[in-house]
Design a protein around this nucleic acid. Sequence first.
DNA 1: CCGTATCCATTCCGATACTG
DNA 2: CAGTATCGGAATGGATACGG
Lengths: 154, 154
Amino acid sequence: MARGVTHERAECPVARAVDVIGDRWSLLIVRDAFDGITRFSDFQRNLGLAKNILASRLRDLTAAGILEAVPAAEGSAYRKYTLTEKGRELFSLIVAIRQWGEEYLFEDQEPHSVLLDTEHERPLRRLEVVDSTGRALTSSGTFVRKVSHGDARS
Amino acid sequence: MARGVTHERAECPVARAVDVIGDRWSLLIVRDAFDGITRFSDFQRNLGLAKNILASRLRDLTAAGILEAVPAAEGSAYRKYTLTEKGRELFSLIVAIRQWGEEYLFEDQEPHSVLLDTEHERPLRRLEVVDSTGRALTSSGTFVRKVSHGDARS
DNA sequence: CCGTATCCATTCCGATACTG
DNA sequence: CAGTATCGGAATGGATACGG
């Protein structure tokens, strides 16, 4: 994701993360990767984006350590793209986005794809933000502490 | 967020959500709103983005029903931007991004801002994806079911 | 202080053509 | 199939100037 200004050195983890995955395609590529897609053309067909853009995003995500490009077969010039651990740890994030989208971006009777657990084939429970003792929290029960003598921006 | 192609009609909630908040600034504006920022100039100073871009994003987020623009005072021409319920429900998403960023985008000893619960002033517990019975899941314990006769894209 | 308007550079992205 | 190369239009984003 080439760009002018970055938040690479921000003290806020949200800002740094947005820098890495905050664009129109990266998260959708990651979503597809979670769905088991590994091949260039499958990403391309599924997302409907231009090939040069896809190539660029795959490069960036690989450079960021979110995807790993391994040879598709012995000695093959082609690659299989799979999630690294860093990438797989984006699962909560994908689930959070999905649940928010389901709730607020669809009409009541409008169909959408659903994420099910393999064992029961039932939708997941809604994500809950909880404090260190396990109690549920809303944003009003929290606050951000900035780093003490930070010279960092944002 | 004006753009060429959109995922507005996608059957995947992730795609629709990325359409709304998947850019470099929207999520950071929402983060600031969670931190209690309401005024144009405070957003601007804190984020360091151009005023025209900020104005555009605030318009878009308001149009999307994530922010609400209320008069700053009686008869004032200026506005206060606050989160709607739809916006406040992005809290899990912000927490998910933050926790991922904390874990993977900072060096071990590198300082970053932290989100604490007001009562104990301690970091939150890590988000957990759980199935309908409350059991923790990773992505490999889940799968996506597409809608049956969808003509929708992606 | 709160924006809007304008200008300009850069980037994004799609379409197409091309290589292995 | 898996990309790279190039082109052009659209949008992003910064800087500045201006008006309520």
